[in-house]
Amino acid sequence: MAEAAIPQPAGARKSRPVSAGWFAVGRAPSPRARLILGVLSFLLPLAIWSAVSYLPFLWHPLIEITDPGDVAYFEKGMRAPGDAFAAEVEAAKAGGQAPPQGVPANPVYLPAPHEVAVALWKAVFPAEGGGTSLLGAFWHSVQIIFWAFLISSAVGVPLGVLCGAYSSIGRLTEPFVEFFRYLPAPAFGALAVAVLGIYDGPKIAIVVIGTFFQQVLIIAATTRRVEYALLEAAQTLGARNLRLVRRVVVPAILPDLYNDQRILLGWAWTYLIVAELVGTSSGITFFITQQARYQHFENVYAAILILGVVGFGSDLLLARLGRWLFPWKATSA
């Protein structure tokens, strides 16, 4: 049937007033505006953090003692609650003793941006022989993730594709996998240590357990979403069985499979944090718990920031790589 073009009034497309600008509902901002907004989304939280850290009249519920005066239990560098400090000042003045001196301060768990920046700098360029290295700990974590994700994917991806492509394999595999998925991976910690020792073995095992079962189900579901008409077309062109899987199913789902793997990699990082507490603590988690125990919160924040930057950065990189790997996906208008 002929579809008559709906007549449009001249200029209907561009007639929106420019003043709608940045706050037009449902309209994509210009690339320049997008960049500015993207940068702002990081700068705004940083600005709030800086304001709370550097403006003494914002929050600052504690007083950092600069001179304990004659108060016996105060000492230099200690942080006292504001009202307790005021009471001691009153008491000292009334008793004719030297009052304590202090400046408003935030709790120790909220270091200022510059302190975290220095900690980051030290982590990336550590001084000679200086203590626990953040980067070293981080590198250890990366290795655990790498091996765990490799082992999980080597079995999970092909199995997931087969489960999705052949419903008999799916029916045989998925009920058990579905059951196992509900067993929390950290619960296998003690077992993993008993079987695999106290070093990296059980950590890798826990990340594998946490990732693998989800991976099989997600990839099977993705495989089932392959456009059935493509399979039919391929069959009329002579493709059968494993060749149909290899030449049609796999290439058809590859971009979605790639995205699944990106998401699963994120989950693997979450399981890592639990896994590193099993057996001898190690890696980034050990670094964070240890630094928190010493109240070196600037190092804790530095570690968390590095995790965030590496996670965010690698995801951006993988997304970019995906667009390059699957040009036929990007060109669809």
Binding site: E232, A234, P251, L254, F326
Partner: peptide
């Protein structure tokens, strides 16, 4: 292969 089919929805392989 003695019968080939052309579908309404094109069914070209988008990755090729």
């Amino acid at each position: 292969p003695d019968r080939a089919m052309v579908f309404q929805g094109y069914t070209l392989f988008p990755w090729l």
